[in-house]
Design a protein around this nucleic acid. Structure first.
Lengths: 286, 286
DNA sequence: CTAATAGTGTCTGTTAGACACTATCTA
DNA sequence: TAGATAGTGTCTAACAGACACTATTAG
């Protein structure tokens, strides 16, 4: 069909006349929250900025979306650049941050993605063009108090080998029909995050903690075959507290299938399992 | 502090030299999924496009984000333009769609917001510059089958007074570590949605149905004071099926406070309630 | 044997679904 | 009174938290 508009233009004529240069436009970037488990702790990749703005602050890895590039392609490209991960790694869009004044260079709208990978997939994490250095920080979010009026939590990011500590106090306050979240840098910190990156990290931790028990999200940080103890360690690193071994095993086994193989590590040989993706991965959608 | 970068620039010098015109940039828009309840049915506002591209297709209301405008401000401006809603109406960011080829004009990255309001807040819904007409379509998402390998659902959007029907068959298929969602227009339809708008609508229905029972989200479509029967009607319109009255009342009362007032409508006078925002609105965050 | 790790069984209080029932209003 | 709408009580199966217990390996 060769439909015309009110000015008598066909689609082809309309597109030929379309002027995209009449308005000033924002720039679009993707930021990645890349997590893994190492030494029983949850880790996040951060890069130290070597240029303005936010010079010398720690930031989420990310970069500009090319004009002709799908957003997911940009994420995969950045993942490969930052970590040499080329296999298909799990990632999921988290949120888009677009306050007009969030970056002093120009209007920058950024979409944050949450990504996870088993430790052995990470081959290198070279500092890119924009980074002085990179570091896998241990990260935890501990909820100190939950009540009717809100919640108080603490997010810690530590790089012990360089003695870097960032601590943010996060409060969620119940308002009339929404929840207001504020994050402030705790004075015991000796470094800080660039821009509004703490907001994305906070959302990522909420998502991880919320979904850890009911979805298969934690298996993205485990190798193909793993023991129940390994799974529990990852689970506990995510939720930031220990959990009952019996109950954990009882509940997680419905998501798994046994391999029949064993793996000995100093005590009784442990059975190896795989994730069974047929187990209600649909929760993932929400 | 007057930190300098590797080229010896202060922040001020860096910003003065920053050239934002060196790359071609996407355009950014917001799209709104505006829902209400009317006549016991869930309704969504759609506009019929009167220009290319997607001429004569039905689309989500939305528009460009001004260069100096926060995204939330853009949403509120569009809401006011489309419906004359000025009071603070609930809205929540859903997802950002940014495939490189989703719009033939230029690269357009759009962020979809889910918004709800009680019917009486909607004063007019005039067709704007881009719209031939607007319509409040009844909308439902019914899940036909759920199994280990995925889920099949049907989304219906109907405007009975103009005899317009749009039906989409939606399948969620479990893959190795993610869920693939596909939506196809059912041939019984006599109209269709523009662009990729069915994706945003599908996500909105998932969110609504998922959160309807556990959060206070449904109260955004009710007046300040309401009866339990009204609340149940809204709940059933969202989830697309009836539910047990006794169980619904038992479970919802923890989110409410009684007003002591009554409201008679043909049978026994019903008690009026208000939403108690102190009841775990935190779920909302996830 | 001990220490270390892996793994099981069971009690109990809470919750979600099913369903039968009672109460108050108008005409 | 009937018909309509509002509202309650109770049984049961499933589930989640707490916790005490057994099993297999290395040295």
């Amino acid at each position: 069909m060769n439909e015309v508009n009110a000015r008598g233009q066909t689609l082809e004529e309309f597109l030929a006349a379309y002027d995209e240069t009449q308005y000033r436009r924002p720039s679009n970037t993707v930021d990645m929250i890349l997590m893994t488990i190492s030494g029983g702790s949850l880790k996040i990749l951060l890069v130290k900025r070597k240029d303005h703005p936010f010079i010398h602050d720690w930031a989420l890895p990310g970069g500009f979306i090319n004009f002709d590039e799908d957003m997911e392609t940009a994420v995969q490209r950045e993942l490969a650049e930052e970590t040499n991960i080329t296999d298909h790694t799990y990632f999921k869009q988290l949120y888009t941050f677009g306050n007009a004044d969030r970056d002093p260079r120009t209007r920058i709208i950024t979409t944050a993605y949450l990504s996870m990978t088993p430790e052995e997939n990470i081959r290198n994490t070279a500092a890119g063009d924009d980074a002085e250095e990179t570091g896998w920080f241990t990260i935890s979010k501990i909820t100190v108090h939950t009540g009717d009026e809100g919640r108080e939590s603490v997010i810690r990011m530590d790089l012990p080998e360089k003695n870097i500590h960032m601590i943010y106090d996060v409060t969620d306050s119940v308002r009339s029909n929404y929840v207001e979240t504020r994050s402030v840098l705790n004075p015991d910190s000796n470094a800080r995050l660039a821009c509004d990156h703490i907001k994305a990290i906070n959302m990522a931790m909420d998502q991880l903690q919320h979904r850890a028990a009911s979805t298969g999200i934690l298996f993205n940080m485990l190798p193909e075959e793993f023991t129940l103890r390994q799974a529990q360690t990852v689970y506990e690193a995510i939720i930031g507290r220990t959990t009952d071994t019996g109950n954990f095993r009882r509940d997680i086994r419905k998501m798994l299938k046994a391999t029949g193989k064993k793996c000995a590590t100093g005590g009784k040989a442990a059975e190896l399992f795989r994730f069974n993706p047929l187990y209600s991965f649909l929760e993932e959608k929400i």
